[in-house]
Amino acid sequence: MMRTPTALLILIACSVWVLPVVAPASPKWLPIEKSEVLALFVSEFGLGNDDILSMEQWLNQLRIKYADDPKRLARVNEEQSRMKAEQGDEDEIWFVGRRSLPLLVAMIGVGEQVHSLRIGVPVVNLSKEEGERTFRVLSDLFEAIYPDWSDAKNWPTTSLKDSWNRLAAMQRGDDPDKTLVRETRNGITSTTFGVPPDLVIYAVTVRKRCLPTATTGNPYERIVC
């Protein structure tokens, strides 16, 4: 059977290989290293390289602080068990530690590489100056994590307001995860949650097991993962 030129063109077009679209692999590490996270706090809070504490160093500070308080000392030991459970086989947990720093900054990873970090901000306790410095650092941090996202610098404030509004709108029986504000870009997920007007927590990770979720335990009680 003779085929017209048009029919031949259609056959040729239909026989062209269509390559499957392959989603990019999720990153293994955040695009910011441990020392770079610390550097963001140096200019605003005067920290130095010796202000990165290991898990044991951080816990020892708490043990000294609460030496005369058995109940709090017991909670420190509980924290140690919880953090060890959060660690992977090669993971290390670090804290940006200095009493003058009005935040809790924790990271988990290997060497200089970080796969998850968490920053707890006791908003109600911050002076106006501390609040301004804190949110400048957070804006710089999220811009470093999401260099291609134009609204990254606004994420600390917009997600804070959103999370507090969601918590205020919660009804009995609602899914607790509805209060978690998430943004995922390039395999990196940021989650913001908190209790107005006291506290906001920012969690960033490339590991599924480190995503804050009520189904895997109280997200407020987790240190990093």
Rank of each mutant, 00 (worst) to 15 (best):
M1Y: 10
M2T: 07
M2D: 13
T6W: 13
T6G: 14
L9R: 15
I10N: 06
S15Y: 02
W17F: 15
V18P: 11
V18N: 10
V18W: 06
P20F: 05
W29S: 05
L30C: 05
E33P: 00
L38W: 01
L40D: 00
V42Q: 04
S43K: 14
L47K: 08
L47C: 00
G48D: 08
N49C: 00
D50F: 03
L53S: 11
M55C: 10
W58S: 14
L59V: 04
R63Q: 10
K65F: 11
Y66P: 04
D69F: 04
R72G: 04
A74W: 00
V76P: 06
N77E: 13
E79M: 14
M83C: 07
A85R: 08
A85Q: 06
Q87I: 02
G88E: 09
D89Q: 08
I93S: 00
I93P: 02
G97A: 11
R98H: 13
L101Y: 00
L101H: 00
L101D: 01
P102K: 09
A106N: 09
M107N: 07
I108Q: 15
V110P: 00
G111K: 03
E112P: 14
Q113L: 13
H115M: 12
I119P: 01
P122C: 11
V123G: 03
V124G: 05
N125E: 13
N125W: 09
K128W: 07
G131A: 10
R133Q: 15
L138E: 04
F142V: 05
E143N: 02
E143L: 05
A144T: 02
A144L: 06
A144E: 05
W149L: 15
D151R: 14
D151Q: 11
P156Q: 02
P156N: 07
T158R: 07
T158I: 12
S159G: 02
L160I: 03
K161R: 12
W164Q: 03
A168L: 12
M170C: 01
Q171F: 06
G173C: 05
D174T: 06
D174A: 12
V181A: 07
R182M: 13
E183V: 13
E183D: 09
T184G: 04
T184E: 15
I188G: 01
T191P: 01
T192A: 15
V195H: 13
P197C: 11
P197L: 12
D198Y: 14
D198W: 09
A203V: 13
A203C: 08
V206I: 08
K208M: 07
R209W: 07
C210Q: 04
C210W: 06
P212Q: 04
A214H: 14
A214N: 11
G217E: 09
N218Q: 05
Y220K: 01
I223N: 09
C225M: 11
